[in-house]
Write a protein that binds this DNA or RNA. Structure first.
Lengths: 119, 119
DNA sequence: TGACAAGCCTCATGGTTATAGGTATTATCA
DNA sequence: TGATAATACCTATAACCATGAGGCTTGTCA
């Protein structure tokens, strides 16, 4: 019988973005102290909009990273606005290294299969 | 068993694999007709185990792709075993092109931010 | 006044891989 | 012979995570 069981998989945006926000947040914070809103804008502008993660993605990550002690934060008032500045800890640095090699492993693997094969 | 309420985010495999199986399956089928088991093995061996998707991942994809008319299939008995051979349709070719440019967009974007920044 | 940017936050939804099973046939090897 | 691995197919469930929409506040500019 079996008509149904169509396993929907609706296919909107597969997008290859799984884990990318974490990688980029750690990478940016490895260079300099930054605050959340700045990270969101930086990713958007520096990639020419190729990548654009919403605040709803970045903020929860920052909270998670802080809970995991991969980043530390301090609050500072600048021109009447409160900013939470984050910077990488040693633990975050280690995590960044892991994620970076993971990223390289995946992209290398994909490249191997994407290349045209000659005879 | 639920101990915390700590917003778990368990962090096992961020892995960057979102959408990769679909991209690779389409790419492989663009080159030649293949059957499911062969695809699983091909990905595993050709990447030197860097990428290895289980059958439980690939088979549902093939069924989905067929339902979407991105691939067509034929069944053939080979050496006493039944194989379902799949090949790309024009629609699948188009989808592959979309995914490929999406992949390039993402990896390019990530590269922009991962690079060391000088001065 | 109204609109918009800066700056922070949360939650529900839904898509997709991973895990862990399941069936059946054939090949290999002790 | 019996056991195990390899071939070849399949499904259901859980875990994960970006999206999108919402909300709050202060400051700026018209």
């Amino acid at each position: 019988m079996v008509i149904g069981i169509i396993t929907v998989m609706k296919k909107t945006n597969p997008s290859f973005l799984n884990g990318v926000p974490e990688l980029l947040v750690l990478r940016l914070l490895a260079r300099q102290e930054m605050y959340g809103y700045q990270i969101v804008e930086e990713i958007r502008t520096r990639t020419g909009e190729a990548l654009a993660f919403g605040e709803g993605c970045i903020y929860p990550y920052l909270h998670y990273l802080e809970a995991e002690k991969q980043v530390s934060s301090r609050r500072q008032e600048v021109e009447g606005r409160n900013r939470n500045y984050y910077k990488l800890t040693a633990r975050g640095r280690k995590r960044l290294d892991e994620l970076t090699s993971e990223w390289n492993r995946v992209t290398t693997g994909v490249s191997l299969l994407m290349e045209e094969r000659r005879a």
